[in-house]
């Protein structure tokens, strides 16, 4: 069920937005297949009627008043950006 071919890895790499070379795809196909083989044993566990456990924190999400608690920190927000202009992040052209 879990042997990954190169084309599948290419698709995963695209979804992950990570550039991978042709040789890299072959190596990753091997690595990822080994990992998937390793987790395959979960299929034998009987989980009939079992609810997925998404968090061990036995909490209902707390609510707070809907009011602004921060802001006016434009310089701080931008201070680590690789490229900024006029108080904005700069991205490559997205609209032709």
């Amino acid at each position: 069920m879990s042997s990954l071919d190169k084309e599948t890895v290419r698709r995963i790499a695209y979804l992950s937005r990570i550039n991978v070379s042709e040789e890299g795809l072959t190596e990753l196909a091997g690595d990822l297949t080994r990992i998937l083989d390793f987790v395959e044993e979960l299929q034998e566990v009987d989980v009939e009627g079992c609810e997925p456990l998404t968090s061990v924190a036995d909490l209902t999400l707390p609510l707070r008043k809907d009011e602004v608690t921060d802001g006016n920190i434009q310089q701080k927000v931008l201070s680590n950006a690789p490229m900024t202009d006029a108080g904005c992040f700069v991205v490559p052209k997205v609209v032709e």
Binding site: M1, V39, L42, Q43, V45, V47, C50, E51, P52, L53, T54, V56
Partner: peptide, 15 residues
């Protein structure tokens, strides 16, 4: 479902 959801269910068993 085959992987992620299954793992969360097994996680409950472990819990």
């Amino acid at each position: 479902d085959a992987y992620y959801n299954k793992a969360l269910k097994v996680r409950r068993r472990i819990y």
